[in-house]
């Protein structure tokens, strides 16, 4: 198990270099516009801009800049923001708790709602309840998150006036409810559909018939014997989605003015703050790698046939 974790961590290195290379290329090579001009404005004179470019190391050859960038990453240095002059890693550390809070809450909502709906649908397939749940799930997957977010704001914040429109509210839980629902809906829908199909497959298995023939109650058959088997593919869905959510959810954070990593990334793109863009993208990649490892390890708990070596 430990060797497995170590091996996976080593495998993460080339992935991170790849991500770093792509973000470097995207920002420095393919993005038009000079970041220094963005900072200084249209009227700054060429001499000043050139001296600032010098200071920032932007006049060095691209290859030198690239190797410098990659080496610094492994020292934990993601550079300084062009805009605020603060280390990027500091800004991420500051914003990440808000993203974590939103992402985990949304996932909690999604897991509870999704798995419950999936089980109910699977136990009574093609029933009225199943029809309602699966139609809602289809709607939940299809509706864009910013649109759902705006609808929630209009209904609960503007018309009913029972929840705040947006913002962090210093950690007040009322500020969390709408963004968590907006963000969790699509995940709940995905989880519900996956749970339903996986559960329906498992219910037909021979060992479920065996469990019934032992005289177990239907509740034990479903929740003990079927669910644990059915959850194995659901875990994969939860894992990949959690990676997205914790990497910062650009649209939801923007809709609700939520001060997370996602919104910071959007701001960085708008102001050509290259180190900030690179930093947030790398951070999302790391989150993805870590979550994937955690998910892969959790399979072992759900399914004893999986062993790590």
């Amino acid at each position: 198990m430990l060797t497995y974790i170590i091996r996976r961590s080593i495998m993460a290195v080339p992935i991170l270099i790849g991500v770093a290379t792509i973000t470097f290329l995207l920002t420095f090579v393919f993005v038009p516009g000079d970041p220094v001009r963005m900072i200084m404005g249209q009227h700054a004179d060429e001499a000043t801009i050139d001296s600032i470019r010098d200071e920032m190391g932007l006049n060095r050859p691209l290859s030198v800049q690239y190797f410098d960038f990659v080496l610094k990453i492994f020292k934990g240095d993601l550079g300084r923001s062009y805009k605020t002059r603060r280390p990027v890693i500091e800004s991420i550390a500051e914003r990440f708790p808000a993203t974590l809070r939103l992402g985990l809450s949304a996932m909690a909502v999604a897991i509870v709602v999704g798995i419950t709906a999936g089980i109910v649908s699977a136990v009574k397939p093609y029933s009225v309840v199943d029809g309602i749940f699966m139609s809602l799930a289809l709607l939940g997957i299809s509706i864009p998150v910013f649109y759902l977010g705006l609808l929630l704001i209009v209904v609960f914040a503007v018309n009913l006036n029972i929840l705040p429109v947006g913002g962090f509210g210093g950690g007040d839980i009322r500020y969390l409810i709408l963004p968590a629902i907006a963000l969790g809906t699509a995940q709940a829908a995905r989880i519900a559909r996956m749970t339903r199909s996986s559960m329906m497959e498992v219910i037909r298995m021979d060992y479920i018939r065996t469990a019934r023939s032992k005289g177990l109650s239907e509740k034990t058959v479903i929740f003990k014997h079927a669910l644990r088997n059915a959850l194995i593919p659901v875990i994969t869905v939860i894992g990949t989605q959690l990676g997205y959510l914790l990497g910062g959810t650009v649209l939801t954070e923007t809709t609700f003015s939520w001060p997370g990593v996602g919104r910071m990334a959007v701001d960085a793109v708008q102001s050509r703050d290259f180190p900030m863009i690179q930093g947030t993208v790398l951070f999302m990649a790391i989150i993805f790698i870590v979550i994937n490892l955690v998910v892969d390890l959790s399979y072992g708990w759900f399914d004893p046939r999986i062993r790590y070596e």
Partner: peptide, 20 residues
Amino acid sequence: IRGNEISMIFQEPMTSLNPV
């Protein structure tokens, strides 16, 4: 009665036990 007074064994030993 099931599993207590009347028990059953099935054709497929490979799949009749819960893998987890």
